[in-house]
Simulated scan of single mutants.
Amino acid sequence: MRIDVYTPLVLSLLLAAVAPQVSRRVSPALAARVLTAAAVITAAATTWALVLLAATLINEAPPVTEEARAEGRTLPEPVPEVIGVAALLALAVIAHRFYRAVRTEATTRRTLRRLCEGHPADSELIVAASPVPEAFAIPATARAPGRILVTAAMLAALPPAERRVLFAHERAHLTHRHARICTAVTLATAANPLLGPVRDAVAFLVERWADEHAADAVGDRDTAARALARAALVAQRARRACALAFTDRAVTRRVAALRTAPPPHLWPMAAAVLTLGILPALGAAAATGDLLELLEHILD
């Protein structure tokens, strides 16, 4: 089997390396979409490449080796046996990781749905009487619309103009279905742990995307930056994670971004990232042809 089967793994490292730079230079909405698409395609390609490597163990199956010996044929060895075994073990680990990721996502969604119980179906905003300053979006389901949950402590900490920023930020998560993007990249990373930096970049980008949406909605980037900084400060004083679900360093970067002009789309860079995601699929497709040739040789 040629080197094609290994290209998805190598390109995974390259995609992970460029993801942080893309998150800084390209418009958040565009960058989040192309990185997620590239991650999903790459994860599928790497998983299939491992399937192909594991499939080469068919050469070691007793019926195949006995038949070849009886006919005096020599079976080709496309990859060393140890690589095939390693690929098989890797697939078992991936299956376990993927199962855990799916279960975690399902548990999280059930928990979020419970928070909406008892509230009118047409109510977008839910205010929780909690002393902990928090705010987050609850994604829509087939049975219920998306909701925005804000605690009384968070509302009390923000003046009216900054509350509008907060609501616009959370509404952006719902409008642009950020939960689906995050779920897709999380499952891709479960299938290919090398894509961890891509997952982190996308998680940051969806927050930046919502920040830009909020700034546009209120028409004032400075107000959006102040709202984000105040929410983070209030949450830090409460010794909890940032109300917008990010570390202090990430919040600092987001505030700094709102203090400057919106980043450009940079379509060429976005196209290059998407191409980088497609290349592993091409490598896996070429490796599939190699495997089919191997099977044809064995069955002849």
Rank of each mutant, 00 (worst) to 15 (best):
Y6S: 06
L11M: 05
S12P: 01
L14F: 07
R24S: 03
L30Q: 02
A31R: 01
R33Q: 09
T36Q: 11
A37R: 08
V40A: 08
T47H: 12
V51N: 04
A61N: 06
P63R: 12
T74S: 10
L75F: 03
P76I: 14
P80N: 00
E81H: 08
E81A: 13
V82F: 13
A87V: 06
A87R: 14
L89N: 05
A90K: 08
L91P: 13
A95F: 08
F98N: 09
V102P: 09
L112V: 03
R113D: 15
P120H: 03
A121K: 10
S123P: 03
S130H: 04
P133E: 00
L155W: 00
L158H: 00
P159K: 04
E170Y: 01
A172E: 14
R180T: 04
T183L: 10
V185W: 01
L187R: 15
A191I: 15
G196N: 07
V202K: 07
L205T: 11
L205E: 14
A210H: 03
A214Q: 14
A217L: 13
R221H: 13
A224I: 13
L228N: 06
R230Y: 10
V234A: 14
Q236E: 15
R240L: 06
C242D: 14
A245K: 08
F246Q: 12
F246Y: 06
R249W: 04
T252H: 03
R253Y: 06
R259F: 01
T260W: 00
H265K: 08
W267F: 06
W267Y: 07
V273W: 02
P280K: 04
A284L: 07
A284E: 02
A285D: 12
L294Y: 10
E296C: 01
H297Y: 10
D300I: 03
